[in-house]
Design a protein around this nucleic acid. Structure first.
Lengths: 204, 204
DNA sequence: CCTACCGATCGGTAGG
DNA sequence: CCTACCGATCGGTAGG
């Protein structure tokens, strides 16, 4: 039988709160998130929710951390088994499309990082810094994949990895907008076409 | 003092409110906007502000309308004198860069439409519909410019105007993020490089 | 365009 | 993790 553990139960409650918070923040943003709404959704008191974090800002940071773990699990991890080079880069790109297109259960309002980056880009503070840091981490990692593809001779030697990463960013921001705001049924197709134009042009 | 203002004075006050509202919404979003903050900034009472619009939603719509007029004046109007075709398309694209890069006075927190599109993409209602409508209007107009360039033989005959417009959207979303969140000094350069890759490739 | 006010909700605290 | 509560602020209204 499972012995009653207050600590373990508290951890599970905390995880429940954060999962719900990720979903709510995906829809309403990290600022639009409220303790009261979260408490209501989970059948907890506001103090019961806030007690796990102390402040709303700490909750926002925990939410961001959880979303980042989900992103890594959906986009990076499945690609780590693929051989380095253009194939792995394209695997990451495809996972990224799927993350935006099919991860509706976890992120019902679309990419949380896109929402947060727009919400906080004009407000200094720990949340803004963490959003920017996460985006930079992924940009660097993506640039590394591009570099490996260049070194493997699968992309032209004069490729500028950071330029490619910048353009990839735009492709995914456009996809998120086409999916969430415009509800464009061609969104994924257009994205794949844009990727084909950006990436494998010289790989044939 | 002047409870009985003339109609002209009331109009000027309304314009002052909206201009301030555009600036605030650029930083805090159309939801982050509050009547109280607006009233405080302008030395008015909350009722004095709200009286011009009736509801916060009406204020949001008026703010969106004003921002759209500013966008048209900065991006479309200056290009209307340029001859149709690739030259005019590129003029619009350059004005768009300038709008995002230098219109800090009017939009201190970056592109209001980008902020609003992310804020409202998961919330139905008149604001969401208007944001989507404006983006669609500009997409159609941009596609028209692309089409003119194709007809002038300056872009390949098999160009898909809507695909080009979709990719242009991504380029500008990436620029806004690089400017506002990442404060990347290379943002404008990277944008121009992306445009060169997208547009004039077959125009030589 | 003002004062005065409304109920609701915000983030957060005290104490158990 | 709860109840009970805090001051502040929210959008909005009544009446002048």
């Amino acid at each position: 039988m499972s012995p009653r553990s207050t600590v373990a139960e508290a951890r599970r409650t905390r995880a429940r709160i954060i999962d719900r918070s990720v979903a709510l923040a995906s829809v309403d943003g990290l600022e639009g998130l409220t303790i009261g709404r979260l408490a209501g959704d989970l059948g907890l008191s506001k103090a019961g929710v806030l007690g796990h974090f102390g402040t709303k800002e700490a909750l926002q940071l925990a939410t961001l951390e959880r979303a980042s773990a989900l992103f890594t699990a959906l986009v990076w991890d499945p690609a780590s088994a693929v051989e380095p080079g253009l194939r792995r880069l394209r695997a990451v790109c495809q996972n990224w499309i799927d993350y935006l297109d099919h991860a509706r259960e976890v992120f019902p309002g679309g990419c949380l990082f896109t929402t947060a980056s727009v919400e906080f880009d004009a407000h200094d503070g720990p949340v803004r810094r963490n959003v920017a840091r996460l985006l930079m981490v992924w940009r660097r990692r993506l640039a590394g994949e591009v570099r490996l593809a260049v070194e493997a001779g699968e992309l032209p030697a004069d490729t500028d990895p950071e330029q490619v990463v910048h353009e990839l960013t735009g492709i995914y921001l456009a996809l998120n907008q086409a999916l969430q705001l415009l509800r464009d049924p061609l969104a994924a197709t257009r994205t794949r076409r844009a990727l084909d134009r950006l990436l494998p042009v010289l790989a044939r």
